[in-house]
Design a protein around this nucleic acid. Sequence first.
DNA 1: GCAAAGATTTGCT
DNA 2: GCAAATCTTTGCC
Length: 221
Amino acid sequence: MTAGSTPPPFPRAALAGPCLDAARALLGALLIRRVPGTPDRVGRIVEVEAYAGEDDAASHARFGRTGRSRVMYGEPGTAYVYLVYGMHHCLNVVTEPEERPAAVLIRALEPVAGLDAMRTARGTATASRVVRNARLAAGPGLVAAAFGIDRSHTGLDLCDAASPLRLAPAPAGAPVPDIRATARIGVGYAHEPWRSAPWRLLVAGSPSLSGPASLRTGTPA
DNA sequence: GCAAAGATTTGCT
DNA sequence: GCAAATCTTTGCC
């Protein structure tokens, strides 16, 4: 793409189907953060998790339609940001048709552009220790930190090219990602089969996957 | 109105 | 390898 051009919006139709299909479609896509006066931050999505419906005992929708989960019942492509452990924000993309509560958690990005802005946004975490470029957004809390995302962004339309936080399709000619699957992280509170469902999807071999190396491989999906 | 637990990351032992 | 930091959301009395 040429300098200054605007990448096309991510197709909403690719998010309106089953949550796992949407999760696969998001791998390789771009997340773009635009803040006036600062360079655009762009990251390639390399790790996601699917949270599908009120039946999913690991999903925030497991209690039904509450104040927090309400946005998950909305239009596919809507942003859902929550605060976890009282300190980290996590970005989700609402999926499936309206009235069906489902979302995909964006767990890790490969930095593409605006790396300096990401490093600045990470703040003391990058100042007090060595953080390689590839690791700037290598975890769900780090994605939000590096891109300056918080709960005020809940409700944004990620499929709107004019939104300050949005999605764009994988660039033309980009290789088809080699997708692997594992159980979701941090959902030990859920009962089976939800706890072990292989709904964490990742791009094999990416240097930006979350967690220890032992958890960065999966089974072919 | 209160208590418990959490879709994480970091730093110290 | 383990525990702390920190506060919102939800369920129950």
